[in-house]
Each structure stands twice: as structure tokens, then as C-alpha cells.
Simulated assay, not measured.
Amino acid sequence: MAGVNWFDTGGRDYGAFRPDYPSELAAHLADCAARTGCAVDVGCGTGQLTRHLARHFDRVIGLDPSDDQLRNALPHPRITWRRAGAEDMGLDDGSADLITAAQAAHWFDLPAFYAQVRRAAAPGAVIALVSYGVMELDDAALDARFRRFYDHEAGPFWPPERRLVDDGYAGLYFPFAEIPAPDLSIRRDWRLDEVLGYVATWSSVRRLREAGRQEVLAGFAADLAALWGDPDRPRGVAWPVAMRLGRL
């Protein structure tokens, strides 16, 4: 494994390494909505949640301020991809039956976003702010080394907004009548390159690289590879899903 720069090759493709959400999530959101005409996914990235919503809604709009993210979003007959921010979504009044933000709301100007939500929401519409927490590896030794990297080595390089994700959005300002959320998790069987490719998409890893701390990344990759054994052997990984659901 010597000489492999995981954090250079993996960091280029957000869409390839960010986990999709469980299909049960989109189904539950559709059940909560009064109608299934139009869903809007704000800060959609490459469409990790957007694609699932298209199975349940007649029309889906994926919004993201990044052209690069949208270029990597796959075409779908029910999805319209648009470049727009959360604070100026450009939606018609009363047009959205569901408005979601997955792993994105902690970056928003929330009062401005919520003003847009209230304007765009149809009667009985649902808002869902979704996040997934820290990855857990089924192997105890791998998980312990991963948590040391997450908490102590990458930890100082996380932006302060990350605390909201770690807290499952419990501390997020949310001025809506709340709906109970289901207990869900994302589970995958991943190879070593997939785990490291996912880690490479983190903002803290980008900051580590910008700070010239390549030795921290190299040490983590080497330790994980030694504990993993055969890099092509899939191992179980999981993320707890948290959300705030509200009705307008």
C-alpha cells in the first residue's frame, strides 16, 4: 500500500464516495407530505437524497450553489437540477409539497432559508432537515483508529458548524410544528479505498492538506491499511441518520 495518495485521488469525486440515504427515508417523507406533486432538495450536492425522492414525487427540483456538484448529478426524467442557494431558491410561491436539506442546513443562513421555505411551501407541506452522524466501523480496532482520527487529528480542522451535525441537528433553530422522525441508519459494506475516499471528501481533510499536514493523513491511511488487511475485503460501516421534520 506504500505510495498510494488516498487523499489526492479520493477527494476529487464527492459523488462517488458520499453515501446515499436509505430508501425508507424518501418513502417516509412522501408519506408525511400532504401531496406528492413537487419535492425540492436544497443543497442537493450530486443528488444523494434527490434521486430517492424522484421515486415518490411527480417532480423534483435539486438546488445547489456549486456548478461542480451539479455537473456530477446524474440526469433523471423527474429531476430538474438548478444552480441556486438556500437563501434565494427562485421557487414559485406555494409550489413545494416537500422541502429537504440533507447534510447541508448547518451551512445555511437559517432565517433567510426559512423565509424562502414559507414562501415556497404549499399548504400542508413538510420541511425535513436531514443529517448523518459519525461513521461507525463494525470492526472494533478499525473503529477506534477511525475515531481517534475524527476526534483528535481531523477534529481541530472541522469548522464550528460541524458540531450541529454531531448533535444530530438537535441544537438547530427550527421554528416549525415538529413531526416524529423514524429511527434510520445508512449501512454499507465498503472496501478500504471507499472508506478513505469518503474521508477525503471532508472539509477538515481539505483544511489539513491546506495546512501542510500531509503526515497526519498519511499516518492515518497507513494505520487503517495495516488494520484492514486485504484492502479489497468489504467491511461493514454505518452512519446514524438524524432529522428535524416539520409541517407548515
Results as ranks from 00 to 15, higher is better:
G212V: 10
A211M: 11
L192A: 10
A140V: 09
Q103Y: 11
C44A: 12
D93T: 15
A120M: 00
F17Q: 00
P22N: 11
R55K: 03
I186E: 12
A125N: 01
A120W: 03
Q69K: 14
Y173V: 02
P156A: 07
A121M: 03
T50E: 08
F149I: 11
D109Q: 07
W6H: 14
G155W: 07
A181Y: 00
V40I: 04
A33T: 02
D230S: 00
H52C: 09
A30V: 06
G85F: 08
G168D: 01
I127T: 04
P231C: 12
G168K: 00
E161Y: 06
C38R: 11
G37R: 01
A34Q: 14
F176M: 07
Q69W: 14
A200N: 10
L91M: 10
L217P: 07
L49H: 10
P111N: 04
G37P: 10
A104M: 15
G212R: 10
D20H: 07
F7V: 07
G45A: 04
G155N: 02
L248C: 15
W158H: 12
A16I: 13
P77L: 13
P159F: 08
P234S: 13
A170Q: 02
A200W: 09
G85V: 00
L172A: 09
P111H: 06
G47M: 10
A101P: 06
